[in-house]
Design a protein around this nucleic acid. Structure first.
Lengths: 173, 173
DNA sequence: TGGGCCGGTCAACAACCGTAGAATGACCAG
DNA sequence: CTGGTCATTCTACGGTTGTTGACCGGCCCA
């Protein structure tokens, strides 16, 4: 319910009703709503395999591919609530920041931190639109198809040089 | 307040207090909380200039660039609430869908709809991380820097052919 | 047989919410 | 002076929320 409704709109009473028990029982096992959310949103740390510098793109794509054909519901609970609940936001930060710095160290350019942030933003944007908003064709496309389309993007973002065929538009005329 | 707290956590009483008036007065001018949100989240349609097929990338980048150095607070209110409030989700859909189909028609490939969805997901992922989550270097990077990094991504996503320099990893060995 | 744990229900509390309506008071037209 | 509109406040209602504590029945152990 946290994954579908977010933190504030899931009530303890509704959770209890869905479980066929009394609300007091939920309070008996989980001491507070915050704690219940903590348990429900407790994800198994999901670390990226610490691939060396150059293969970071494939590591990221493999991770994304896994998430694209079945994101754990605990992660969806965090994602759904992170914009309105400070605990969920904190949890998201705690999960994203080590990955961010890991990606950053794998990128050789000066603006590595920004490139890593962009990669992270893309991943999360895709996950959000696929699972939470279900907008456009992203909701039902096959993971492989998405991965193949994203690969060149990730490569140019993680690479020091831009591929020569991508050209900026003429600034005049 | 909707932009900072989301729909459920901003109360009419808090809005009134912030305005230095009584809650009843807010109800007098805006008839309900839903209506107050509608007014606060009422954005000026924000249409993409209907650029022809090939320049869609630059149109998109220009639009993103504008949003990167000052997203209207009404749009932030919608973004913040869209995961937990159905009205906000509807509003987001209504704003995103025409842009989606516009981008789709500008892309010549068979999987145009999916590519358009990916472009949209990237844009929204970047906006969310910059303004709502304030994670990583995305929060304070200059719009130009972000745009330049994103341009090759957008080009490969909107182009029929992949640039020859982007190579898939060998599947064996 | 008795007594303590344990899963579970019930009723209630205080706080807060959106909302409604009556009351107040200032201002301005006649 | 009067009456009516207007902005504004006050009080209150009904509902929902998280949370609490008393109560109850079955089960196991002595």
């Amino acid at each position: 319910m946290f994954a579908e409704l977010g933190y504030e709109r899931t009530t303890i009473r509704a959770v209890a009703r869905a479980a066929g028990v009394d609300a007091g029982l939920v309070m008996h096992y989980f001491d507070s709503k915050d704690n219940l959310f903590s348990r429900a949103a407790d994800l198994p740390a999901d670390e990226l395999p610490s691939g060396g510098g150059e293969e970071i793109v494939e590591v990221l794509l493999a991770s994304l591919s896994g998430r694209l054909d079945g994101e754990p519901v605990a992660s969806l609970a965090v994602l759904r609530s992170m914009l309105t609940n400070t605990d969920a936001a904190e949890r998201y930060r705690a999960a994203a920041e080590p990955q961010l710095s890991q990606i950053t160290t794998a990128i050789p350019t000066e603006d590595a931190a920004l490139r890593a942030s962009l990669l992270s933003a893309i991943v999360h944007g895709v996950i959000i639109e696929r699972y939470l908003l279900r907008l456009g064709r992203l909701a039902d496309a096959s993971p492989d198809q998405i991965i193949e389309l994203l690969r060149p993007c990730f490569q140019t973002l993680a690479a020091a040089e831009m591929p020569p065929s991508t050209v900026r538009p003429a600034s005049a005329s």
